[in-house]
């Protein structure tokens, strides 16, 4: 097993960890963090697969896509956090409607 495969598997592991946290946690901040961890896993897979040819210089296209993805993830996270603050201001809770205790 070479190091590229190890990075890619670590990315898959991060994605799975994030997916698990997204499902089991009700708090919206934890859900946003979980989605970010999932995104980091995807970026790790993409970057590591860009260098899977041994000896050759890494493929720049996945790297450029990851830079684009990071910026989009940051702006989406900022929007999600602002929405979460709005939900909290309206309802006093940071939970989705299905999770709320009546």
């Amino acid at each position: 097993m070479n190091s590229i495969l190890l990075y890619a598997l670590a990315g898959v592991g991060l994605f799975t960890l994030g997916l698990y946290a997204l499902i089991v946690h009700a708090h919206l901040l934890r859900k946003i963090l979980a989605i970010n961890v999932m995104g980091s896993g995807v970026f790790l897979v993409l970057v590591s697969l860009g260098g899977r040819t041994p000896g050759a210089s890494p493929d720049p296209v996945p790297h450029a896509m990851v830079i684009t993805g990071i910026v989009v993830a940051v702006s989406a996270t900022a929007l999600a956090l602002a929405l979460m603050l709005r939900v909290q201001a309206k309802t006093g809770q940071t939970l989705l409607p299905e999770e709320r205790l009546e």
Partner: peptide
């Protein structure tokens, strides 16, 4: 992507 950044900011400002 630059447009996405602007749209995200518009979304935050609209809240």
């Amino acid at each position: 992507e630059m447009a996405v950044l602007l749209v995200a900011l518009l979304g935050v400002w609209s809240l």
